[in-house]
Amino acid sequence: MDPSTRQAFTNWTQAQPAVSAYVFALTGDRALRDEILQATALSVLESFGTYDASRPFLPWALSIARNEVANARRQARRLPMHLSTTLSDAAEEALARAVDAIAREEHERLAHLGECVKLLEGRAREICDYRYRAGLKPGRIAQLLGLAPNTVSKALERLRGDLRDCIERREAGGAA
């Protein structure tokens, strides 16, 4: 492996979680995210020669990912439900900047996520399972659990908040 390829791999490995999150946010679909992530990785490797090493890598990778999302949208015009979460250009750019700004710090914090998820119990854990293991949307979860969709949406918002609090507590505890 030549030094350039090795450097590309190293940079990509560090950037990949943030790029994944960004693509997931733009597509809203797990399978599409993974496909686009693969395409982005290939593009990064193929075009690494054009990357200006004096500039941060993540914004460059995010811009490539955004192009891949745009390509997927063009190719998938008959699959509108997979790409229903389109944002305006300005919003996509703003999100990319924000992801770039916090990615490293958040990546370290999210190392505590697994421990915090294990603390979820009862209905919160059940809803989390349906949402993230099964990939179901709130309306469908509500149907399965006999709840109102808004109840499930609120529960998801609450449990994510609880997870965020748990992560911050553990981060603070580890830092203390």
């Binding site: 999150a21 946010a25 997870l163 965020r164």
Partner: peptide
Amino acid sequence: ARELAQLVLLHDALDREFTSGVLA
């Protein structure tokens, strides 16, 4: 934007945790 970015990173990490992490 920062608020959404935090949530987006958590959302993706949760998805990974349940489909390819220990919880899977």
